[in-house]
Amino acid sequence: MSSPHSAIVGMGRATYLRLLVFFLAPAAIVYTVFSIYPLLATIFNSLYLYHSETKSYDYVGLGNFTTLLTDTTWSVPFWNAFRNNLVFFAIHMSVQNPIGLALAAMLSLPRLRLRATYRTLIFMPTMLSVVIIGFVWQLILSPLWGIAKLFLQTFGLGFLFAPWLGQEGSALITISLISVWQFVGIPMILIYTALLAIPEELIDAATVDGLNQFQAFVWVKLPLILPTIGLVSILTFVNNFNAFDLIYAMKGALAGPNFSADIMGTLFYRTFFGNQLQLGNASMGSTIATMMFIIILIGVMTYLFVIQRRMQRYSF
């Protein structure tokens, strides 16, 4: 193969290869050590079972997966966590992303003042640590010291207040909405940048054709940013099914009451690392982690093959 690069920069083939390795190696090494190796090790772990009598790890094939999906001791918590994860995801998709879209649309209005201020303020919570977010919201919603109760009482709506974080029916929804509040900046900023990339001429043409701001958004801008909305959706999916920290920070590893806020991340943590008197179980923990990986893989694949391929792209 005659290499065009040597003609351009006057560099020998050996030098070129060395340079290639030099630039690729850091990313390749970090990615292999911190992502590929742990992933493979986890899958490998999930095929073994620890026997405390013999103190040895025995190969059991897919035995751990059978246990996880068929033994009620494991399957009930697993499907409960899966179901809660779906609710967690559904709330993000139906609340976080539409709000993100609406905020981005408003930010890109031509006559908006203080644009940068709004953008920064809305994006701020995303940069805070979840521990702080969890603590602050727990205080806001606290039935003892929280301002949520006083706020509702001011409008004569005090009867609406309940200890939302402590009730089986509302704990997960409350935490999901807190997470929405924290991360709404991400879809906003991604969609906002996509909106900025749309040429002014298209909007001008639409205006000449008699469309108002709202119609121009729905009929011209929205189709153009659909690929970005698709990207936002898949990011939300992956992040939600990997979520753990906010729920752990607010409800602990048992994610109560009665495991009503337990998602796969907390179930994995409790199983792998243990809790109070429960000892960590590396085999079953890895099995749950592998299941999470498979679920995310199926979700992402479905998106790539079913949705993204049919998406139309426009270039200007």
């Binding site: 001791t73 494991w74 089986e168 109560g256 009451p257 009665n258 008197l277």
Partner: peptide
């Protein structure tokens, strides 16, 4: 508390539920 389900975890769960009046 050596087995699965873990007794201590179960105890936390049911005691909280008894106090909450949901069990």
């Amino acid at each position: 508390s050596r087995g699965t389900p873990n007794l201590e975890n179960e105890l936390w769960n049911v005691s909280a539920q008894v106090l909450n009046g949901t069990m």
